[in-house]
């Protein structure tokens, strides 16, 4: 039998999930989960306290519509924090960066997603297209979340290299990516990896042993995916309790605290 005294000093980790959404999707799978209440239910099942959320309409239809829906729908839920989806302003669909940041401040939005590539919002993440927006985000220290299926590692390298004060969070970073991002994580402290798919055997411990815990962030992709797996990936990890706490939520909280709109 397990000696439970060995674990008695452990407290439940406080999870702050950086990769959640609300909103209906075109292709639901197994169950229809889309509302704020649905997400909260999934969070409770997994034991996750807080989450940074975007709206699927902002990703799958248009940022302008989805971002406003997000603010309206999570207004009464103090466990959820808004993350907007943004695009460059040149077509007039999104305010110029200066105005955008004012809107974000007004709505207490402290993180953004960008979905470049033809698969999503069909714009370039390169400087000639997104540079002005990236500089504005960098100046305000607003974390930028990028789904790995929307950017290349070459582009991620350019962003973290050109914008050293911009926190860049790579989400959905699968277990076959270590050889790409190890050299980047070592060099660029503004690069963060979200762990929902970071699941090669021993990957969390190896990352922490090599780079410390400050550049790993807890994420789940709820409600489309279960949060239970990411939870036990971390709770059973062979790393210190302080490292677990950092990854579970402290790192994300620190990033959001550093946001300065002015």
């Amino acid at each position: 039998m397990i000696n439970e005294n060995k674990y008695s000093i452990r407290e439940k980790l406080k999870f702050f999930d950086c990769n959640c959404s609300i909103g209906r999707v075109v292709y639901p799978y197994l169950m229809d989960v889309f509302s704020v209440e649905d997400l909260i239910g999934e969070m409770d099942t997994a034991g996750i306290e807080e989450a940074l959320v975007y709206h699927t309409v902002a990703k799958d239809c248009h940022p302008f519509s989805g971002n406003q829906l997000l603010i309206d729908e999570i207004e009464n839920f103090n466990r959820l924090y808004p993350a907007w989806v943004v695009i460059p302003h040149y077509t007039g669909e999104m305010p110029e960066p200066k105005i955008l940041l004012k809107e974000m401040k007004k709505n207490n939005v402290k993180a953004v997603w960008m979905y470049p590539s033809e698969k999503y919002h069909s714009f370039s993440i390169s400087e000639w297209c997104s540079g002005e927006l990236l500089f504005a985000l960098e100046n305000a220290r607003i974390p930028l979340l990028l789904n790995l299926d929307s950017v290349t590692w070459e582009n991620i390298y350019k962003i973290v290299n050109n914008h050293r004060n911009l926190p860049v969070i790579i989400t959905n970073c699968g277990y076959r990516n270590n050889r790409y991002f190890y050299p980047l994580v070592e060099k660029y402290k503004n690069l963060f990896i979200e762990i929902s798919w970071f699941m090669g055997a021993g990957a969390v411990k190896d990352f922490v042993d090599n780079f410390g815990s400050s550049q790993l962030l807890f994420g789940t992709q709820m409600p489309g995916y279960t949060g239970t797996s990411a939870v036990s990936l971390l709770t059973y990890a062979d790393i210190s309790e302080s490292d677990k706490k950092a990854i579970a939520g402290k790192n994300l909280k620190s990033l959001l605290k550093e946001v300065c709109y002015e």
Binding site: T45, A46, G47, Y175, M199, G200, A201, G202, A203, V204, T226, T228, S229, A230, V231, S232, L233, T235, Y236, A237
Partner: peptide
């Protein structure tokens, strides 16, 4: 799928399933 995949996530997935 260990060690392609870390075995730990599967424990939470089953233990916390409804």
């Amino acid at each position: 799928d260990n060690p392609f995949l870390d075995p730990r996530p599967q424990i939470g997935r089953v233990c916390l399933a409804d």
